[in-house]
Amino acid sequence: MPNTRRSRSPLASIGLHGTLLIATVVAVFPALWVLLTSLKPAKFATTTDFFHDTTLANYTHLLGDTKFLTWFGNSVIVAATTTVIGVFLAATTGYAVSRFRFPGMRPLMWVLLITQMFPMAILIVPLYNLFSSMGLLNQPVGLVITYLTIAVPFCAWMMKGFFDAIPVEIDESGRVDGLNPFGTFWRLILPLARPGLAVTGFYSFITAWGEVAYASAFMVGEDNMTLAGGLQTFVNQYTAQWGPMTAASVLIAVPAVIVFVLVQRHLVTGMTAGATKG
């Protein structure tokens, strides 16, 4: 570490904390403001007071009058499945690319990058037709597959970097012990890759949890909606409902934040390796 506390003047200290505090306020405030607004009665949604007749009315309205809980459940299913499968696929792919020099590896790396380049917005119609012919419309499976294609390429890249940072000697010791490549991967390497897996899981979860365009294109009917799609009913052209919207936003953000808190201590280590060697 370059600068240690002993060498910092009080002025520098104030400057440092001041800068970080301002940055923190900017980072947190929009979300915090939504939270505060959601606790005001709907008709005072646009007041500047931080608190104004604090009430949970927006939440009770939301939970009572809409299928919010159904949507919530659908989202949990989709996001959890995406996360589990996504982490697994990203890990196997990342490991293969990291450890083996096999024909097709370089093209695969390019393909993973290219999938990030083609604008997904344009893929909606052909994907719709594809899912329609495979009978995957209006099914959580269809969404899971779609989200995997968004999340896995980046995650696999990141995992490759992470595996690169794990010494090859560990693989070799596995081979000496008579483990096949899968055994080595599963028993020796994966446990060491936990921070990387945490980041991958976080990224997959966030991708699946917050996606709107595909969810509202592929799913129809209140019972099948995910949270993001269901929320469309709040931004319907002919209703101005800031109160319930803010409450809904809070309820959507909470699970994501929980997942974030669970993995956040791994974030820096996990991402570093991924990005350094990516």
Partner: peptide, 13 residues
């Protein structure tokens, strides 16, 4: 942790 908050919240929110 606070500075990473924008990443943790779903984009459309």
């Amino acid at each position: 942790m606070a500075l990473v908050v924008p990443w943790a919240i779903p984009g459309f929110v």
